[in-house]
């Protein structure tokens, strides 16, 4: 793996245990949207750009475009560049989420990493003429999307050792 950080967050010591919490920005995806013109006006085009300095593979993600219109049906698209008829999104008002469809989970085991990510809701085009939206996700790298959800995790204190998820950890310095 490219990322050596499995999880990070905030800790608090209690009587006999440690309580863990995610950092406040755990779910915060930094993005930018560039509006422009492209092709014919009867379609609306989208391009989603994920960070490239990473082991990231676009094939592992499904993009969910949420048009706010009378059709209002979430479109699930398995590629980062796509077009939809503008009749489905006449006021160019949309949300975007994505799903990681390849988490590291063994058969019969649970999953501590998130699989669904809300990028934004209810974006309204600034330019009424724009029909091409390039959406760049800046911090959505492997460390971000594979991070374990630590909210409410409890680590037991047993003498000088810690006990977490059935494993023991020994102090080394």
């Amino acid at each position: 793996p490219m990322c050596d950080t499995i999880a990070s967050g905030i800790w608090n010591q209690r009587a006999g245990f440690i309580e863990l919490h995610n950092k406040p920005d755990f779910n915060k995806i930094n993005y930018s949207i560039v509006e422009s013109l492209r092709g014919t006006k009867d379609s609306v085009y989208f391009r989603i750009i994920l960070p490239k300095d990473d082991a990231l593979d676009y094939k592992n993600f499904v993009f969910n475009l949420i048009p706010y219109s009378k059709y209002d049906q979430v479109l699930k698209i398995n590629k980062p560049e796509f077009a939809i008829p503008n009749v489905r999104i006449p006021r160019i008002n949309f949300g975007l989420s994505l799903q990681n469809i390849e988490p590291n989970v063994d058969f019969g085991k649970g999953n501590f990493q998130r699989t669904n990510f809300m990028i934004f809701e209810n974006y309204q085009a600034k330019d009424n003429n724009a029909n091409f939206f390039t959406i760049t996700l800046n911090n959505f790298n492997q460390c971000f999307y594979e991070a374990m959800d630590m909210e409410g995790q409890i680590i037991g204190i047993e003498g000088k050792k810690l006990v977490w998820r059935g494993n023991r950890y020994e102090k080394i310095n």
Partner: peptide
Amino acid sequence: GIEGKYQKENGKELLIFNADKTFYCLRN
């Protein structure tokens, strides 16, 4: 105190508790 580095018994993971109350779990 709890602050410091802890290694999983099979050696594959590190837990780090910093004095500023941040923690990290790292692949070793």
